[in-house]
């Protein structure tokens, strides 16, 4: 998993706490590299779940909420740090979402041949936009947060619905967004 997501996660924790709490969370997480991540490195995604778990126990908040919120705040960061992936003229969330697979993930797969980005397939009918998320990593909640962050970025209100209970082990999910 790209190191950038780890550095962003640590930044996210620090934004909402302080240096001492952040370092404590990292220190108490069951990871064996001192929590030293560089944006250009690659690290096992299980370590991210460890950090989230540690944060959850120290901050006394549910890990689901942490992951969803992280996703929501991640979107503008990604948008700003990787402008090359974002086409000019895409001015609304549904259009952006519908182009993720083709314009971003396929490109990523080409740039980093060893990477394995999730599949994000979008379909729509007259009333709804349906986003199918499929990954071998249990980050369906981050994806949910990213969708919400996307609508927020384009300043569009959104109510994302999904079936069942999404947890920290969910790898697949179907999100349904009512058209306004």
């Amino acid at each position: 998993m790209k190191g950038m997501l780890f550095t962003e996660l640590i930044d996210f924790i620090e934004r909402h706490t302080d240096i001492a709490t952040t370092e404590q969370i990292i220190d108490e997480a069951r990871i064996d590299r001192l929590g030293a991540y560089t944006a250009v490195g690659n690290y096992p995604h299980e370590e991210m779940l460890e950090i989230v778990g540690s944060a959850s126990s120290i901050l006394k908040s549910r890990p689901q909420e942490l992951m969803r919120q992280f996703g929501k705040e991640l979107f503008p960061k990604l948008y700003e740090s990787h402008p090359q992936f974002f086409e000019e003229g895409v001015k609304d969330a549904p259009l952006f979402l519908s182009r993720i697979q083709e314009h971003i993930h396929d490109e990523v797969a080409k740039l980093y041949p060893k990477s394995s980005p999730p599949k994000v397939l979008v379909s729509e009918d007259e009333t709804r936009l349906v986003v199918n998320y499929e990954s071998h990593r249990p980050f369906a909640l981050v994806a949910l947060g990213l969708i919400e962050g996307c609508y927020e970025y384009f300043d569009q209100p959104v109510d994302v619905q999904f079936d069942g209970d999404l947890g920290v082990t969910s790898t697949n999910a179907q999100f349904s967004i009512l058209k306004t």
């Binding site: 240096i19 001492a20 370092e23 001192l34 030293a36 560089t38 490195g41």
Partner: peptide, 16 residues
């Protein structure tokens, strides 16, 4: 915490 941070950052720098 700062010591940990410094240690962590150095390790990160070295790795980088």
């Amino acid at each position: 915490a700062l010591l940990l941070r410094i240690k962590r950052e150095r390790a990160a720098r070295l790795e980088a």
